[in-house]
């Protein structure tokens, strides 16, 4: 079976995969930072008591979570130019990933904030802290700790989702696999190499998660009702 499998061609294409790997990493990184910004804004809107800000945030989050990322990507890629907004492919890709992942991050951040007990809020209130002081000094530092593992989980999802950008011809990892597959008619070689690269990224992020948990473990925090 393996006699037809050409390791040589893989080696030949390695520089292309290297470039793809680098592209996937930075596309994901920029998208994730954007997603964090989107998520924080959405979460802040969602936590308000007034409907005026809460309703749009809720509708946005539902709309994103209810529709396929591919549809969102196509909407931006084919739809925006029709509205007169012409952006490079990679910008459209980053936009789609950030807007999509932001909705999920908003819910993760919200869950983290809501997991902090009412008593912590009251302790801050009773000592005369303002809303902003309470958030900054009491709630967010605690919420951040419980949020790190699901945040990294979402980062892993985002890296894998970035494969869809190959469909709008952004030169990233999956695109590198596609090129090898179509240039040399070697889909097995192309996509196994692509998959291996994603695995490397996965272990990188997993290591980061482990590192953060180790770091948090150094600073004890007993939760209390």
């Amino acid at each position: 079976m393996l006699e037809n499998f050409s390791f040589r061609t893989i080696v030949e294409y390695l520089p292309l995969f290297g470039q793809g790997l680098v592209a996937t990493v930075w596309l994901s990184l920029v998208s994730f930072v954007g997603a964090l910004a989107v998520g924080i804004v959405l979460c802040a809107m969602n936590l308000q008591r007034g409907r005026l800000l809460q309703a749009p945030a809720k509708i946005y989050i539902d709309a994103i979570r209810a529709t396929p990322l591919l549809v969102q990507l196509y909407f931006l890629y084919f739809g925006l130019p029709r509205l007169g907004i012409i952006l490079p492919e990679f910008v459209v890709g980053i936009l789609a990933l950030a807007l999509n992942s932001g909705a999920y991050l908003a819910e993760i951040i919200r869950a983290g904030i809501l997991s902090i007990s009412r008593g912590q809020v009251e302790a801050g209130v009773a000592s005369g802290m303002t809303y902003v002081q309470r958030m900054r000094l009491v709630i967010l530092p605690q919420a951040f700790r419980v949020t790190i593992p699901p945040l990294l989980g979402q980062a892993i999802v985002l890296v894998k989702d970035s494969a869809l950008l190959s469909l709008i011809s952004v030169a990233e990892l999956t695109r590198a696999g596609q090129l090898l597959a179509s240039d040399r008619f070697m889909p097995a070689e192309g996509f196994i190499t692509t998959a291996a690269c994603y695995l490397v990224l996965y272990y990188g992020l997993k290591g980061l998660a482990g590192l953060s948990e180790w770091w948090l473990g150094l600073r004890p925090m007993g939760s209390r009702a």
Partner: peptide, 30 residues
């Protein structure tokens, strides 16, 4: 509220702060 101390049944100390930081947090920031 800065003139009124409130002690809770469940203490409600800030778990991510040391004992000393718990005491100094509001004086330094408020």
């Amino acid at each position: 509220r800065t003139e009124i101390g409130f002690v809770f049944q469940q203490f409600n100390l800030y778990p991510h702060k040391t004992a000393l930081e718990n005491v100094t947090l509001a004086p330094t920031h408020v």
